[in-house]
Design a protein around this nucleic acid. Sequence first.
RNA 1: GCCCGAAUGGUGGAAUGGUAGACACGAGGGACUUAAAAUCCCUUGGCCAUUACGGCUGUGUGGGUUCGAGUCCCACUUCGGGUACCA
Length: 924
Amino acid sequence: MEYNHKEIENRWQQYWRENNTYRTEIDHSRPKFYVLDMFPYPSGAGLHVGHPLGYIASDIYTRYKRLQGFNVLHPMGYDAYGLPAEQYAIRTGQHPEVTTRNNIERYRSQLDKIGFSFDWSREIKTCDPEYYKWTQWAFIKMFDSYYDTAADAARPIADLVAHLQKHGTEGLHAAATRQLSITPEQWNAMDDKEKSDTLMNYRLAYLGNTMVNWCPALGTVLANDEVSEGLSIRGGHPVEQKLMYQWCLRVSAYAQRLLDGLEKVDWTDSLKETQRNWIGRSEGAEMRFPVADSDIELEIFTTRPDTIFGVTFMVLAPESKYVDMITTEEMRPAVDEYRQSIKHKTERERMIDRRVTGVFTGAYAINPITGKKIPVWVSDYVLAGYGTGAIMAVPAHDSRDYAFARTFDLPVIPLIQGADVSEQSFDAKEGTMINSASDSLNLNGLQVKEAMAAAKEFISRTGIGKVKVNFRLRDAIFSRQRYWGEPIPVAYRNGIPETLPVESLPLLLPEVDKYLPTESGEPPLGRAANWKTAAGLPLELNTMPGFAGSSAYYLRYMDPRNNSCLVSPEANSYWKQVDLYIGGSEHATGHLIYSRFWNKFLYDLGLVCEDEPFRRLINQGMIQGRSNFVYRIKDTNTFVSHGLKDQYDVTPIHVDVNMVTNDRLDIERFKAWSPEYATAEFILEDGQYICGYAVEKMSKSMYNVVNPDDIVERYGADTLRLYEMFLGPLEQSKPWDTNGIDGVNRFIKKLWNLFYRDGKLNVTDTEPTPENLKSLHKLIKKVTADIENFSFNTSVAAFMICVNELAQQRCTSRKVLADLLILLAPFAPHVAEELWHTAIGATTSICDASWPAFNEEYLRESTVRYAVSFNGKARFTMEAPADAPRDTVSDMALSHPDAAKWLENKTVKKIIVVPGKIVNIVLG
RNA sequence: GCCCGAAUGGUGGAAUGGUAGACACGAGGGACUUAAAAUCCCUUGGCCAUUACGGCUGUGUGGGUUCGAGUCCCACUUCGGGUACCA
């Protein structure tokens, strides 16, 4: 019997499929466990070897938990809406659905080859009407809800309407776009349009005029997390700011709960930190500064109310509504010109160009505490979208204000003792206050923290302002001017938006002749014929963004075919939440925020039983490419080997990693690669051409893409799985290097030879020896602990050691070998299943086996080795009885023959004995 | 700029404060073979020895705590990741 991976893997993959081995049902007799992968977007390029990394880890954990007796939910599906399929459709006219279907088929066949234990009966696709019905349904629920800030929960909008009818906005605690002040009489006198507009101020899904990231190249708006450094994440196109009337989700209402919820989940600190920064809670005060000779008051937000005595000017955002109100006649032309110049800059230009610019409005404000007159300026370093779009500038203690003050020659008043502000501002929140006293308030002599508290207390007591918490987290823009997304279930009656009846869902994505905007600039759905309700009302033309479909998919997996609700209470109360979620950290500020928001909303409605969707989360690292280079001597067709390249003037050229083995170039394949190289000549070292290498992103253009299918074909899925885990710690980014794969492949062959020695079955019913049991239980202990810690690389090493030991011991014991296979089954399921049946003689799948119990007894030693150190330096080792008391051990060390030379002419000051490990003799 | 993380042989990487470099790759040497592949054995951080499986040194840099530091503390350097005129 030889190890034949192709035959084995085909056989068992078929067996598992035919026997529905991985089908999962609710089973109250067993504890549940939910392991989830972030489902993939099926791109046209297919999977490369980096994609399955997280899936392999989650599969190992899933299989391990099943062997431990858990009923494990482990589903998979596709995040099927997305830009690439649509852009492909625009170029080729092929329907995105066709592209997507083909890509999904390719993904599925690639995934199947790796031997995952997904329950495919629960597969979902976000573009499937049966699925997106529930995405649309959730949107309608959000439209019909507002956020009650007193109850800290979403409530039906009908409750809000009732409140407005009776009390107006008096006593209303609701998250809102703007603070409104309405009497019941005013509300009741409103017409439908006015009422609709008013309610939009409160709805969780609302239409609003907001500054959006507009990407002209993609022809759509983008959410904040879809933009990085002024460029779109998809495609890298420039993004500009634009005021648009768009659908939004009031995620900001949940900011505090999203922050608090992080305390309850088991995620890495760095990921929690990323979310905390993104939510960006800052505590401070909102204050009003009266404008001189006017009734207008400027409202500002500051986190440093303690620095109120150092305010030497104020700054408004160019878009601030105050600018028009206070600018003096003589300054108006300059201010208008400045605002125009800002408007014409794209977001990216604004980022690159960090010059300090601004203009004086001509107006002065009054410092409410000192009564001093201070000039009001306009500058683009103040953002309209944060706080109130106006600031009090304290140049001595804020670096941005400092730069502005120096540019426009404004005064700088230091407020902290010893702070040198001649060269730069002193931003630290520490020190003793100076220059901070008026008739009503004296902060001098206080520490910064005390001063902050005192200032806040004073401000709220005197009514100058109030203590306020601000969040950086913005509402999510929910409209996309695209075709390939979920239609928003909204129709317009006389221009007033209303949601469709829930019973009419799903609202199907209509057919269009082209996937481009209409001539009049409307989104592609504007091309759909008859895009109206049955009653003839026009339907919404925007579609939902990419994150919509992925926000509640983990709930749908619990009950994927339910036609009457998103998830039944029975299914939800059994599966509860995701116990382990594995995926990339790139979703930290997108999907992982939106999902948590969406889940909390459903929780408020009493539709799900857990407040947080993902209990434990692991970020697998990215697998980078390892590119190979050849070195062409300039202006020739001669290539010089890596070790000799420095003697020539060379150009490095990427070469396909698939024709390089251990950095040695297959010269014949290289010549055949391109006609250009057919006549190439080579300068070799030691008869070989050695390539250089570099770690880069895995991509076609670098010729460093390694396809998992090729690895499976050549070495088998088990080798691929083990090798991906062996490569390094799961959470760390690391380059893929096929070179090391022979090591794990050899391990599988060694394992095989343990069961079939010289082609003959080598398993007997002999009793295990103490040595056998020691090797086995060392492994049980190590692998169990490693899986719990996601330290898969070290468990693979432990398998290698154990197999070597058992081979050396000539172990044939069926009991020991069977347990070895169970331990290995999560990692290399095919070979484990094969040997389980053919060599062990089992008649049921190894998936139905039980994880072996660890017994400390077998590891107990009668003697242990001590390292004997002198002054901390280890010098020799000695054996001692395992149960010897410390005094006996130190006496043994001192009388040991090797000790004599170290003890010569020295006095022993102290002896430290660490049982079973170290004897450290401290000499005088 | 701010926040987080990392730094260990030629390479990927192991090490509850207790003999640094597990495991693997690569490399060198050997066995088997007409030869190659495959397989197996030995060596492999550096330096000095090789009469000794002996010595010295060694985990980015400099300090500290400790009987003992890759591991803990302080300062710094470099590299990744996140975020950015967020007041």
